[in-house]
């Protein structure tokens, strides 16, 4: 949930934007990170681990653990706790390793 009126800091969320997760629209606010905005909308599962295929989501929120990797505007493995939302942002979960050896990626 978005905190509309913070007990100490008051109302802080002012500039709403629409972001897309798996092509579904969600409401977020400009100063929020991608990870936080998704959590506000009830999305916690951001991807799957590479070996055991287990769910992963935000853990450290400091850009250290890399558990919040997602694909943002076509770029794979973005630390979503470190970048802020932008209008129309397209976000997909990190379900497998990016294709780096196929056509268009050199070899």
């Amino acid at each position: 949930m978005h905190i509309k009126d913070h007990p100490v800091l008051g109302p802080q969320l002012q500039d709403p934007v629409t972001i897309y997760f798996n092509d579904q629209p969600y409401m977020a606010y400009k100063q929020q990170t991608v990870a936080a905005a998704l959590i506000a909308n009830g999305v916690k599962k951001f991807g799957l681990s590479r070996k055991l295929v287990q769910s992963r989501g935000l853990f450290c929120s400091r850009g250290r653990c890399c558990s919040c990797y997602m694909t943002v505007n076509g770029e794979d493995h973005v630390r979503t706790c470190m970048i802020r939302v932008e209008e129309g942002m397209e976000i997909y979960p990190n379900l497998e390793d990016p294709e780096v050896r196929g056509d268009g990626h050199g070899d």
Partner: peptide, 30 residues
Amino acid sequence: AEKAVPFPKWTLPGVITVGAAQTLVNRDFV
């Protein structure tokens, strides 16, 4: 850096550091 506390399935989404929780509440307003 915050140290983690491991237990079976601590890797599940929803298990976060206290610092991460504070960031969500007081910086991201979530």
